[in-house]
Amino acid sequence: MNLLNRLQNIDSRLLYLLLALVVSVPLIFPIPAGKAVVLPQSRSFFDSVERVTGDPVAQKKLVIVSFSFSASTATENLSQADAILRHLMARRMKIALFSFSDPQGRDLAQGLAERIAPEYGYQYGRDYVNWGYKSGDPAPNIKSLSRDIYGTIGKDIKGTPLAQIPLMQNYKSVNDVAMVVEISSVSSLEYWLGYFAAAGENRIPINYGCTAVMAPEAFPFLKSGQISGLLNGLTGAGEYEALILQAKYATQPGFGSRASASLSFAHFLIILLIVVGNVSMIVLRRQQAAAAAREAR
């Protein structure tokens, strides 16, 4: 079997091993990061948070951070949530964590907040609260939330009625919300756009962090102005980490930045394999066609 044939029949297990090696090497031996390239949609997300947190009226309101994902996409979504929560905490916003699409979001949110909160002097019940998971059809949940937060949520994850939580004393409806951040691996954005964003006296800015698979479908919402910013998968998380690091809201890069070299190397390997596979296929076909022509003569 010549080289071209071998290239056409590489054992897929060898390719998996090669991919694992390419991804692992930058994780074991970190490569010094250059200047981060921040795409407009991530910059727009950051600017939107800055605008809201810099507005004296909005500062007194609540930011809802919705965790609509499970552990399976934590690499992308939790890295995004980490950077966003750091930004919000550094800007001293009051935060409500919420989950209505996936039950695991509730504990992923709590674990992350408990890890970050001490760094920013945040306390549960005073500066942030976890509304827990609300199952069922999201439409009535979100619609009802816009009118009556106490009635819709009832109790937080610790079983305390919202009315008894110090943080929640002044936040009762959509008019007390400054911004919604939806971090998602499922199509949950439309519920906020459809039932919440325009339900109050003023339109609420919606920011969206999604898995890379979902990003192409989210860009039209950015163009139409329905969302203020968009974080695209792990790359978006890395870009946001660079922005908050630059603004001194964080002291060290997060996982998104650390993983960017692995992601680039893996992309490079896949492109290389596509080129090698296609070139070998074309050359092989030409050789076979020429051989067939010779035989025909």
């Binding site: 991804v23 994780l27 934590a74 698979v213 192409p216 992601l263 992309h267």
Partner: peptide, 22 residues
């Protein structure tokens, strides 16, 4: 473009798991 994004998402998950192992 959508398929490229899908690959990026899947690789991100692989990176997350390998980071956990390593």
């Amino acid at each position: 473009a959508i398929f490229g994004s899908t690959i990026m998402a899947r690789l991100s998950l692989l990176i997350g798991r390998l980071y956990f192992l390593l």
